[in-house]
Amino acid sequence: MTVPALSPSSGRRRAAAGLVCVLVALVQTGCAATDDRAHGAASERPASPVVARPAAGMAFDYQIGGGYAPPSGVEAVSRDREDEPADGLYNVCYVNAFQTQPGELKRWEKTDPDLLLRDGDGEPVIDEGWGEVLLDTSTAAKRTRLAEIVGAWIDGCAESGFQAVEPDNLDSYERSQGKLTRSHNAAFATMLAERAHASGLAIGQKNTTDLLPRSSAIGFDFAVTEECAQFDECDAYAEAYDGRVFAVEYEGEGDIGFDESCSAWQDRVSLVLRDLDVLPATEKGYVYRSC
C-alpha cells in the first residue's frame, strides 16, 4: 500500500493515554424536592459514571497497530477497540467512527448501505488514502442510527476496561466531495461524547484544529493529534486542553526532526515518535521514541 503524505488536521488513526488520572465529572443528584414532596415520595436519579481525564504530561505510546509490552516509563497507551487494554495504565480506545474499516465494508453494504456516503452516481465516497468509505452524517436520522452502531463499540471499550475513547476521522467532511459539513460531524461527535460519558469514558478530539472552537460544546476532554509539530498546531491543542494532549509524530514525515519537536513542545504536550504503520515492537520497521 502506498501511504500518502498526511495533511494538516488530517483525521488518520493514531492516539494515546495513562494511569495518573484526573476526575472530571462525578455528578450526583439527590431528591427532586418539589415534585417528590408534592407526591410524598423521594426518588433519586442514578449517579453519573465517573469520567477520568488523562493528566497533562503523561508519557504514552501509540499502539493502534497492535498491542505490546509498553516501554519503560509509559503511563498511557492507545489501542484498537478490538485489542485488550494494558494492565495498570491509562488506556485510550481507538474507534474509526466517521469512516469504515476496510475489512468491514461488506458488512455495511449488507446491513446499512444507506449509512454510507454516496456521490451523485450512487457510488460510495472513498478516502483514497486508506481505502475507507465515509459514513453519512448529513441528517439527524442517519446520525442517530450511526450513534447506535458506534455507540455500541464505545460501550464495548468501557466493558473491556479502557478509560477513554478516540473517535477517528472527525475531519471526514474534508474528503466528502462537499456532501458533509463541519456542523454535521460536530453534531455526530456530540452524540458520541454523550455516549462515552454515559459509559464512564473520557473522549479525545482526534486532529481537526478547525473544530477546536467547538471542543467544549461537543464535550471533548483531551486531544490526540498527529503531526502537530510539523504543522505548528501543538500550541492550539495545548491551549484548548490545558496540556492534556497526546501528540504523535511519524518517522520520516515532514521537515521538522523529532529532537527539534521535543525542544519546542515537550513542556506543552505528551510527544512520541512512531513509525507510520504503527507496528508492534516485534515487527521490522518499528519505531518508538519519546522526549
Rank of each mutant, 00 (worst) to 15 (best):
T2W: 08
A5C: 05
A41G: 06
E104T: 08
Q99Y: 07
Y90D: 05
E253C: 01
P4V: 01
A240H: 06
M1D: 10
K206N: 10
T190P: 07
A196V: 13
L146G: 07
L271V: 04
E128L: 02
E260G: 00
W108V: 02
E174R: 02
A55L: 00
N169T: 13
D119A: 00
P102G: 07
A264W: 12
I154H: 15
A229D: 15
P70C: 04
G161N: 06
Q266G: 03
P71D: 08
A15T: 13
Y173V: 02
I64T: 12
E109H: 12
R45T: 12
P213V: 01
E44M: 02
F162Y: 15
G11L: 02
R214D: 10
R268P: 00
F220Q: 06
K179H: 07
A76R: 14
K206G: 02
A55D: 09
R268T: 03
M191E: 15
A86I: 09
P102H: 08
A164C: 06
Q205D: 09
R244C: 02
D80M: 08
S215Y: 07
A5R: 15
D255M: 00
R268D: 09
D275N: 05
T190W: 12
R145F: 09
E123F: 11
V248I: 14
G11S: 11
N185Y: 10
W130H: 04
V287Q: 06
T282S: 15
E109C: 05
C93M: 07
A33D: 14
A17H: 14
S160R: 14
A281N: 15
A264Q: 09
D255Q: 08
Y94R: 04
F188A: 00
F258S: 02
V77A: 13
F231K: 03
S270M: 01
S216G: 14
S199T: 08
L134V: 10
R268F: 05
P49I: 12
L105G: 05
V278D: 10
R182C: 02
